[in-house]
Design a protein around this nucleic acid. Structure first.
Lengths: 120, 120
DNA sequence: CTAGTTGTACTATTGTCGTAGTACAATCTA
DNA sequence: TAGATTGTACTACGACAATAGTACAACTAG
């Protein structure tokens, strides 16, 4: 998996799990670039993309911050739409491989049961 | 989506839906290449890949055919494994986007209901 | 055995993706 | 305003995937 994708995922994960909180400042593009032994542009690209998604907020000369309001209604709509699209792609792939929606449901439910068992 | 992937999917779909039946002969690599305005190698690549998957069977100087026995036990196991892997990828992507397995289940069940409504 | 069919191997070209290098623009701070 | 810090735009390079071109090998049919 490309560096920028790994980084994007890591940041999103850090935010959703609360390790990065709303309003908190992220490392400088250069700082993070040095730390990860990566070009600054790669980090910048990730920050920019996450800003377009409304997750981060960047201010020149200042830094990059976790957006203060990222779970608003508008974003929730986008999120729903993303989920639909993801499921669309998934169903398409599956049907090409000869699986029905029911097959997928079964498999998913099996997973969920295992997961709950683990957590108990 | 690349040509070879489209073609692969199309052939798989044709077989699973019965438009291509077991033992039936497919077009020559050259025929299909001309028809699709594509290089013969692209078609050959697809045929070869599908043969490795046990879906097609090619005989030099004769042609390419739908494999006579593709729903045997051994293949069914592979199929199950493929389903698991597909769901794995799906869950991973989804969790990176902040969705839980339950979100996916809900969305899928909604789809299924709509589908059954349509078919009734 | 020969001609014609089939699939296949090898190589080259093209386009795209990921990343890096460098130079620039915006902002803050003293 | 001057200098430092921030993000950003532009370009280029390397790697890889996808496709095409050409020549070859296996097989069939007469």
């Amino acid at each position: 998996m490309p560096l920028y994708a790994q980084l994007t995922r890591a940041i999103q994960f850090a935010i959703t799990t609360g390790r990065l909180r709303q309003g908190e400042q992220l490392p400088t593009v250069r700082q993070l670039a040095v730390e990860l032994r990566v070009n600054a542009n790669t980090v910048a690209k990730v920050y920019a993309e996450l800003e377009r998604s409304g997750i981060l907020e960047t201010r020149r000369g200042v830094g990059t911050f976790v957006c203060a309001r990222q779970f608003e209604a508008s974003h929730r709509q986008d999120h729903e739409e993303q989920l639909r699209q993801l499921v669309d792609r998934f169903l398409e792939e599956a049907s090409a491989m000869g699986f029905t929606a029911d097959d997928l449901l079964d498999q998913l439910q099996t997973r969920r049961k295992k997961e709950t068992k683990k957590n108990v």
